[in-house]
Design a protein around this nucleic acid. Structure first.
Length: 261
DNA sequence: ATGGCCGCGATCCGCGGA
């Protein structure tokens, strides 16, 4: 099974790329982030025509996540628990039946948090990460394959960006951000790309500005975090970097993991 | 690391993104 995550940066602006990529990549499950539309505006017909079920959790103008899947999900949960007042559409989870039991996949769009000295935005990010940790801890007790896939807006290590100096004071790389990420990791989750890559992996995001793609000024912020039961079945990962060179690209590229279920 | 981007939704500018 191939499970992918892709911050698509506007699904309506990117529908041609999405269709072309689905045909080429042929993933079984796709977690999308930043669909930037409400549920009824999602271009579902084009996706369903390729044989995918479509589940969305959108909002007007920005944020929004979706899960596309060849299998029909048994259940879908929208919203990250822990704050009823949080209106941002940044989280959904779907459960699927596979041979041997259930697997769970979450599509995560973790808050950016910049500017990092903002009295609201950065604390929102850190608070959201605490809620994610609480949810992840609870889910681990199920002892099921669980894949937390998405745009974490976290650069885990210095070698996950082209120049750590540049990112020093950025919300994506501050010590408190990386610490909150490690707290989740240390519950028992495996960073799928890190676990399957010898040496330095490539990046998953290149800014639109200043020729960042051409200069390879990238960062690795899109991650698939695996519960032990999922990590046991991990066979390989791929960062589908060539998609960044397509016409009208997203600034993120798809990242996928292969499993033996 | 921003002179040089991009999507969106309100209108031909502001916000959010990373």
């Amino acid at each position: 099974m191939k499970i992918a995550t892709w911050n698509i940066n506007g699904v309506r602006a990117r529908i041609e790329n999405l269709v072309a990529w689905l045909k080429e990549s042929n993933p079984d499950i796709v977690c999308l982030q930043e669909i930037k539309c409400q549920d009824d505006a999602f271009p579902r017909l084009e996706i369903e025509a390729l044989g995918y079920h479509v589940e969305t959790h959108g909002q007007k103008g920005f944020n929004g996540v979706a899960i596309l899947s060849k299998l029909k999900p048994d259940e879908v949960m929208r919203r990250l628990p822990g704050d009823e007042a949080d209106e941002h559409a940044r989280f959904m989870e779907a459960a699927f039946s596979v041979e041997g039991g259930a697997i769970r996949v979450a599509s995560i769009y973790l808050p950016n948090g910049n500017p990092s000295n903002d009295p609201v935005k950065y604390p929102y990010k850190i608070g959201w990460m605490g809620r994610l940790e609480a949810y992840a801890r609870e889910r681990l007790a199920l002892e099921e394959p669980l894949i937390l896939a998405g745009d974490y807006n976290v650069i885990p290590e210095p070698h996950d960006c082209w120049d750590p100096k540049v990112w020093e004071n950025d919300a994506l790389f501050l010590p408190a951000t990386r610490q909150a990420f490690r707290k989740i990791e240390h519950l028992g989750f495996t960073d799928a790309v890190r676990a399957t890559t010898d040496g330095v992996p490539t990046y998953t995001f290149w800014d639109y500005q200043a020729g960042a793609w051409q200069k390879n000024w990238g960062i690795r912020i899109d991650h698939l975090m695996l519960s032990p039961e999922a990590a046991d079945r991990l066979t390989s990962t791929v960062i589908e970097k060539h998609v960044r060179a397509w016409e009208k690209p997203s600034d993120h590229v798809p990242v996928a993991a292969y499993f033996s279920f």
